[in-house]
């Protein structure tokens, strides 16, 4: 049994970690971009960003005051048992969010969309969001939080099969230009793309691709992986760097996730996970132990399954 108190403590801890500690994969990616950056201003900005990450970790203060709209991705092992069930889990996550907002502190970004009521704790109607996924043959609970800015850098478009790769590339470029100028997207970013699914799932997949996959990771489908590489290169050839200044550091990595979609359509979403890719993960075990990491490992073979059934046979095939 995984206890509510353990869930709350772990969720509280990852809220602080996400805000302060930059994942190593993103830092490595950014250092690589700095080495290749020719633009004078862009180079200066990248250096300042790296200085900032050091200051955040030294002072244990958030690297950015816009600590995003805190949210959780919960992956439950199929055999995990949670004290108080999922209502217990959700209460623990809400308590952790409110406490972390006060203590880290995080910016209380969450307000009612019309009245603008701010509870000063990042908790409210449908906030924090909690998304769920499941994993076979496991009894742990993974809780991931991401701190992603919420205003710019995402867009959706219904494309059609005949639009093909050209349509995908054009829309990708549109979003890079639209939100890259003046750096509204807070690039260089991990760019996530959702292709297919229903419209809402297109958006969800793209956001998850941006937020829940690490720099250097490739989609296991070679066709998708090739497009990931092409779009990343294209984004960095635009001639724009951080803040939209002349440069070549726009896309730290590009991740695409697909979902089977309507036979007549090819919906697409693009999301930029603002610089620093703030994410943190806790894995909770039934014996009370907790492991922390920065790779959400969200897109497992089970998540990307195509088959009707899932059994040890499919599992063995998926891992090759």
């Amino acid at each position: 049994m995984i206890k509510n108190s353990a869930i709350e403590a772990a969720a509280y801890e990852i809220m602080a970690r996400a805000a302060i500690d930059i994942p190593e994969d993103y830092k490595t990616g950014l250092r690589g971009m700095l080495d290749g950056e020719k633009g004078e201003l862009s180079h200066f900005v990248l250096e300042a960003m790296l200085d900032n990450y050091d200051a955040a970790e030294e002072d244990r203060r958030p690297m950015c005051a816009d600590t995003g709209v805190p949210r959780y991705y919960v992956k439950a092992g199929n055999d995990a048992r949670i004290e108080g069930g999922f209502v217990g889990l959700e209460s623990a996550l809400r308590r952790a969010t409110a406490r972390a907002t006060q203590d880290v502190p995080l910016r209380p970004n969450r307000v009612h969309p019309l009245s603008r009521q701010d509870n000063n704790n990042n908790v409210g109607i449908n906030a924090p969001e909690i998304e769920y996924a499941f994993e076979p043959d496991a009894d742990w609970l993974d809780i991931t939080t991401v701190h992603k800015g919420g205003l710019f850098g995402s867009d959706y478009r219904m494309l059609f099969p005949g639009d093909g790769i050209d349509g995908i590339k054009r829309f990708f470029l549109d979003v890079m230009y639209e939100f890259g100028r003046r750096g509204l997207a807070c690039q260089p970013a991990i760019v996530g793309i959702g292709l297919g699914g229903s419209k809402d799932v297109t958006m969800t997949l793209g956001k998850q691709a941006a937020c829940l996959r690490v720099v250097g990771d490739a989609n296991p489908d070679p066709q998708v992986a090739k497009l990931e590489r092409e779009l990343m290169e294209m984004g960095n050839q635009i001639g724009m760097g951080p803040m939209g200044y002349v440069g070549n550091s726009m896309v730290v990595d590009c991740h695409i996730e697909v979902g089977y979609t309507h036979t007549g359509g090819m919906p697409m979403s693009v999301h930029t996970f603002c610089l620093s890719s703030r994410r943190a993960v806790a894995r909770l075990h039934k014996d009370g132990s907790v492991e922390y990491r920065t790779d959400p490992k969200w897109f497992t073979p089970y998540m990307r399954r195509e088959s009707v059934e899932w059994s040890t046979t499919e599992a063995a095939l998926a891992v090759g």
């Binding site: 960003m49 900032n52 002072d59 203060r61 690297m63 209380p108 603002c274």
Partner: peptide, 27 residues
């Protein structure tokens, strides 16, 4: 700069003498 240099700027704040309209407008 970069829009994510919040720690560098936060470190440079040496004092917060007063906050106006905190109750009226929120943090």
């Amino acid at each position: 700069v970069g829009y994510g240099t919040g720690a560098l700027l936060g470190r440079a704040v040496k004092n917060v003498p007063v906050v106006h309209w905190l109750d009226e407008l929120g943090i």
